[in-house]
Simulated scan of single mutants.
Amino acid sequence: MKLESKYFDSIRVGSKRQQGAKKETRAPACQWKGCDKPGAHKAPKGRGRDGEYFHFCVDHVRQYNQDYNYFDGMSDAEVSSFRKDALTGHRPTWKTGANAWAHGTRDEARNAEAAERVNAATARVTRKARSSRTETAPTFRRQLKPLERKSLKVLDLGDDASREDVKSRFKELVKIHHPDANGGDTRSEEKLREILQAYNYLKQSGLV
């Protein structure tokens, strides 16, 4: 084409910035409640909704993936059945001697890889379930203050006493030192007052 051609002036070349803007697609908003960041990362919606995804920002997709459990809601028998089917890629099996290739089954390497993923996921779920059943939180998670330790001593309890231990011992001592049970003995009244003060302090401290 000649530079002096009348068609030369009609040609318009877009800038790289304009071309790049057309290619850009804006990410949907993060679907985490209360978040207004772009949701550029996809997270699976879960079992039974294969191919469906949530859109989260990078912080919330990490939090979602950390708590994600594909086997949530499944019984032990269902998880075991799923693991068994995963060995064959969730395809039907045939007796020894049948032509596996003719039936379209996957090769052994892919089956082994799928089984390994399922076994790892199942092991994590099992460990988490056992941990939640066997772990018991300690009664006192912090070091006792001197007055707290003294109040426990008034109730004839050690530093490792639980809330139930404190309540049970308090009721027991009140019955023993109540004036009605001691013929109005002033010493019992003083002991009962000391017990009440100790219990109330432990209650205010959050140990009861």
Rank of each mutant, 00 (worst) to 15 (best):
P28T: 00
Q31T: 02
K33A: 10
G34V: 01
C35L: 06
D36G: 09
D36I: 10
P38Q: 01
G39D: 04
K42V: 07
A43R: 00
P44W: 00
K45Y: 06
K45A: 02
G46W: 02
R47P: 03
D50F: 13
G51Y: 00
G51H: 03
Y53I: 07
F54M: 01
F54P: 02
F56G: 01
D59I: 06
H60F: 00
H60V: 00
H60N: 03
R62P: 07
R62I: 01
Q66R: 11
Q66T: 11
Q66M: 12
N69P: 07
N69D: 07
F71D: 04
G73R: 00
M74F: 03
M74S: 09
S75P: 02
D76M: 09
A77Y: 02
A77E: 05
R83I: 10
R83D: 09
D85F: 15
T88A: 08
H90K: 09
W94T: 06
W94F: 08
A98M: 04
A100L: 12
W101M: 13
A102C: 04
A102V: 07
A102P: 04
H103V: 10
T105L: 09
R106E: 10
A112D: 05
A114N: 14
A114Y: 14
A115T: 09
E116N: 01
E116M: 05
V118P: 07
A120G: 03
A120R: 03
A121N: 09
A121V: 04
T122L: 13
T122D: 15
T122Y: 11
R124S: 11
V125S: 06
V125H: 13
R127G: 07
R127L: 15
R127T: 15
R127F: 06
A129Y: 07
R130N: 15
R130I: 10
S131Q: 14
S131Y: 15
S132Y: 14
S132M: 15
S132P: 14
S132C: 15
E135I: 09
E135F: 14
A137S: 13
A137P: 15
